[in-house]
Amino acid sequence: MKVSLFVTCLVDGFWPDVGESAVKVLRRAGCEVSFDPRQTCCGQPAYNTGYTDEARRVAAVMIDVFAEDPAEAIVVPSGSCAAMIHHAPRLFEEGDPRRAKAESVAARTHEFSSFLVDTLQVVDLDAKFSGRAVWHDACHGLRELGVKDQPRALLRKVDGLELVEAKGEPTCCGFGGTFSVKQPEVSVAMLDTRMAVLEETAPDVIVSSDVSCLMQIDGRVTKEAKPGAPRIMHLAEVLASR
């Protein structure tokens, strides 16, 4: 299948390894992967802060780039960015040709784990990773896109990996886009609550598929520099390991 990667601005700049791993895994799953360098950001930071005009300007560029893309699927290694593309049609009035374009782009856009499991129906990617892993459910993936069982199914097939479950209903890591810098104290308090629950499972690695959450969790773990702290990894990185 021909797949176009929407790598997201955070992965592009801060976590290129995640993008590289995503490409490896997609190729291993039999996809032909392309990358259009005209892409930048989905517009989510502005959209979620109430800057609709700015979000529309940026989203419009992404829609134009991907509307022309001949790939059958657009794959995003981040749930909240994939969800934003699904919300994007709303930024354009009924009757605006961009709205229809945005809808067709949204219909082809998939979060990474759900693309593998739901679209390609692949769970075994022949990955090897030794250690105990706990999955952190990212809110937008979970509640906007229904990403819940797919990453778990993928992780269960990783040779040497023991998947453990955190207690109770998943809660937010506290990132929330500009929320993380407008309300840093509450944001970190939410993170610490979530981390306590995740760390109760004594994981070697915390895995998620939203780079925003990874940034938040990684930032705290690095700052605290506690000995024996778990590693923070994107699902693609775990699946690329062998």
Binding site: D12, G13, F14, E20, V181, K223
Partner: peptide
């Protein structure tokens, strides 16, 4: 605001698009 309680993530030496 970010850095008070969290370490900043540095931009990678090469971005994904450069590697690509």
């Amino acid at each position: 605001a970010w850095m008070t309680e969290r370490a900043p993530r540095r931009l990678a030496k090469k971005s994904f698009r450069e590697l690509w």
